[in-house]
Design a binder for these strands. Sequence first.
DNA 1: AAAAGCCCCTGGACGC
DNA 2: TGCGTCCAGGGGCTTT
Length: 296
Amino acid sequence: MPELPEVETVRRGLQPVLEGAVLTRVEQRRADLRFPFPERFVERLTGQRVERLERRAKYILVRLGSGETLLMHLGMTGRFTVALPLAETSVQPGEFRHAAGGLPAHDHVVLHTAAGATVTYNDARRFGYMDLIADAGFAEHPLIRDVGIEPLGPDLTPAFLARAARGKTADTKAFLMDQRIVCGLGNIYVCETLFRAGLSPTRAAGRLATSTGKPRAGADRLVPVIRAVLEEAIAAGGSTLRDYAHTDGSLGYFQKTFAVYDREGEACVRPGCTGIVKRRVQANRSTFYCPNCQRD
DNA sequence: AAAAGCCCCTGGACGC
DNA sequence: TGCGTCCAGGGGCTTT
């Protein structure tokens, strides 16, 4: 379920366990996820100190003492389980399924720290992946090079959106989903953003800009809405995470009710609106929207 | 170059 | 209870 807010929530959950930790043992239980693991994956991680945990787009970046960075993408079903040294405090965020043979199903990578904690990566569909990238030249790496601006940073402005959208005939939904322009938004938050901004998902992206690339009203509305949607989701995930870190282990990510996502057939939540949320398919993904609030 | 399709993979929900 | 179908928050690759 990882879009930017979920990835950031996971990063914050892993941070107290991994930052400053030394990886004493690493288990890699299969040769590939979406892509093959890099050469000598286990050897290059074992013995390393984790300097910092960062996030870029939907990637979690583990900065290592060796001058390499472990890059992790969660795909659709990637999850981490953290087990702390004391049995009483061990927590298992998310479901913990066991295969018939004994080993938990789909636990592909396990990191053991010198302090006795374990961090387990579980990914049923294996759309996630991991890579090890030298810090020198990191920005030019193919996985990083073409990633667009961070939506919560200073680069997201109406002028930026207008310049990027100018002349584009693709619909606004595809424009916001495109990680090369603004990163971090996925299907849920694009639907929520378009609803809150009152923009039709099928509207041509080029209409965010004038013919000379200056922002029009849609671009002005999108910027604060994108920020608000993501920040609210992070705040909700963060509160869930505090519970998980200190008490019963009931993480399961951020579960908030959405305004339109997965609400086909339900009444629009906007006060006074009599619209019914519709679902349509764009680029093989479901789009949820209110045909009344998002006419154009 | 941009846009549209297809594909990767497993599991859960649902209908019969 | 079992089986078939559809759907899922990711994005890369190929075709047009």
